[in-house]
Amino acid sequence: METVITLLVGLLVSVATYLLLSKNVIRVVLGSAILSHAIHLLLITMGGLKKGGVPILGDKVETYVDALPQALILTAIVISFAVTSFFLALMYRTYQSIGTDNLHEMRGTNDE
């Protein structure tokens, strides 16, 4: 399972990288979102998959899956939500202000 998920992560990273290299900002944001998905998946894989029960203490289960990565991912998800929403708003504002979503038109000048 771990290998399969790792390969999936690899695929997601590839897709994300490809999108990140676009000149359209929306694609870039999607790329970043996919990259964060991929890394969350990877993080949980690193703790080992399905090696025990749900990490909620009960009487029936002897071993639990690694709970620490889950806590980290939860934090990471929230942070990526914060970042993504800010970035979306920025993208929207930028379009409103300069009328483009093309990075090529956002190069700025060298002032000379």
């Binding site: 790792t6 990273v13 590839s14 990288t17 490809y18 290299l21 990877l42 894989t45 690193m46 620490l68």
Partner: peptide
Amino acid sequence: SIGMGALTVLIALSVQGNNLFESIS
């Protein structure tokens, strides 16, 4: 893109084969 994907996978697989210590969890 392929390079990044491959690199991520290769390191990840190596890490899984290299569980050096018990987790603190």
